[in-house]
Every structure is written in C-alpha cells, then in structure tokens.
C-alpha cells in the first residue's frame, strides 16, 4: 500500500521535473545540432551554430554590454546593499522590517510596470538612455536580494567580535575592514553573484532602459523576430551557463556554516 503510493508519487514528481527541465535540456541539445532547424531528429552534433553565434556582428558588443552591466550591478549593489544590511541589523526589529519592506518594493512590482516607469522617469529627467540607465535600473531590483542575503548573515553576527576589535585599538573603520568584512565576505560575494545573475538574464527592464544597443537577452529577442535559428539556442545556452554558474558559486559561498 505504502510502497505503491510512494511509487505513484515518485512518478508524478518525476513527470514534473521532466516538464520543468526539458525545455532547458532541449535548448542546450539544439545548440549543438548540425541541421538548420530546431527540431528532431538531430542528425549530428556540431559546433556550427556556436561558430555562427561568434560570427554574428552584434554578438560581441552584446556580450560585452551584458558583462559590463552584470559586473557593475554586482559591485554597486554589493557595496550599497551591504551597508544597508548592516544599518538594518543595528536597528530595532520593527523599524528594520518596515524599512526592509520599503527597500524590497521594486522586487514585488511587475517588471513591465517597473520598466515603463523607469523609462518615463529617465526621459523626464533628461537622462540619456544607455548602459548607465540599465545599470541603475538593475541595481534597483537586484539590490533588495543583496540586502536580504547580507541582512540574514548580519542578524547572526556576533557583535562582541566587533567590540573586541574596538577594545583592542581599532577605529570603527579598521574594525570593519579587519574583522567584519573578512567574516561576512563570502556572503557578500555570493550576494553580488546573485545580483549579477539577475542582471545578466533580465530582458524586460533592459529592453525599456537601454535605448539603442543590446545585451544578450535583447539580442536573442531581436534574432527570433527574424527567424528562429539554432544560433539563438547557443546564445541561450551561454546565458544559462553565466547565470547558473554564478548562482552555483553564490550558493556555495552563502551557504550557512556552523
């Protein structure tokens, strides 16, 4: 009885997992097809579409933009988010949770609304659209994640460690750089990588705020408008590698330890 229902639930769970993962798996497989259509049967494996991708004129600027934006977003949101998280951790709980709610508001807004709002905001203050506006916009929605992750670490941070440093002669700044930062560093780096991953795979907000120019996701969107070639799958796989890679590293670094 029990084992039978276990088997049934196992099959259901397996079906769900297959449904969730198969598009991603297909994307990766089709990026290595030797045919020019993204369907089965695959006659042979080749790097033809990867070569195609590399040869596409807009690919390199888009990759560069994606990386520049990702790195800037990671750095800015890590610095600002860590400072915010430390400030919040030092506050009384009630006040901290109110401010936290306010700061995480951008995450709860539909990206489409956020994108349109940001676009009209930049236009109204006469800020030229480009990488800067994309970075600002990405920081807006990536930073709350950094705050949440770092704040969770700061809550369990032993304040006596910092007091010890002060007691032994460190100024507040010295105490931060010699004690606080080295201890929370893995979590901060992890949070920065999460921010980078969010930034690299964002399409909607980038689309509204970049003006001319492309990132990898907007490039893919432009390419599928003219026809779906397996080169799109190659770019998709590349984005997948970048975001999953940084997320895995982030999970490793932010994992709770003893």
């Amino acid at each position: 009885m029990n084992t039978r229902s276990n088997i049934i639930w196992g099959i259901i769970a397996f079906a769900f997992i297959v449904f969730l993962l198969s598009p991603i798996v297909l994307l990766v497989i089709f990026s290595f097809t030797s045919r020019s259509l993204t369907n089965f049967p695959i006659e042979g494996l080749s790097l033809r579409w990867w070569q195609e991708m590399v040869a596409t004129r807009q690919f390199w600027p888009a990759l560069a933009n994606s990386l520049i934006i990702g790195v800037c977003v990671a750095v800015v949101s890590a610095v600002v988010g860590t400072l915010a998280a430390m400030g919040l951790a030092a506050m009384p709980k009630r006040r901290a949770s109110i401010i936290m709610g306010l700061l995480t508001l951008p995450v709860m807004l539909p990206p489409l609304v956020l994108g349109v709002a940001l676009l009209s905001f930049y236009v109204s203050i006469d800020l030229k659209l480009g990488l800067t506006t994309v970075i600002l916009s990405h920081v807006l929605f990536a930073q709350p994640f950094v705050i949440l992750i770092v704040h969770a670490r700061m809550i369990s941070f032993d304040p006596r460690v910092v007091e010890s440093a002060r007691d032994l002669g460190a100024t507040p700044l010295q105490a931060f750089f010699t004690v606080t930062l080295p201890i929370i560093q893995p979590v901060v780096i992890g949070a920065a990588l999460v921010a980078a991953a969010l930034s690299i795979d964002d399409f909607i907000i980038t689309f509204f705020t970049i003006g001319t120019g492309n990132t990898l996701p907007t490039l893919v969107w432009g390419m599928i408008r003219t026809g779906l070639t397996p080169a799109v799958n190659a770019i998709g796989t590349l984005i997948l590698l970048l975001t999953i890679g940084s997320t895995i590293i982030a999970l490793q670094l932010t994992r709770y330890r003893g």
Binding site: D167, A170, T171
Partner: peptide, 20 residues
C-alpha cells in the same frame, strides 16, 4: 573617548574571538 583609546581591555562574555 572610544574603547580603542582607553587604557582598558576587555574579556567579553562569549569571548568575541575573531573566527577568521
């Protein structure tokens, strides 16, 4: 003046050792 400038040193409850 702050603790870093006082001629005192402290052994905290729980010690506050630097784990890194």
């Amino acid at each position: 003046i702050g603790p870093e400038q006082r001629p005192t040193n402290t052994v905290f409850q729980g010690y506050g050792l630097f784990p890194h």
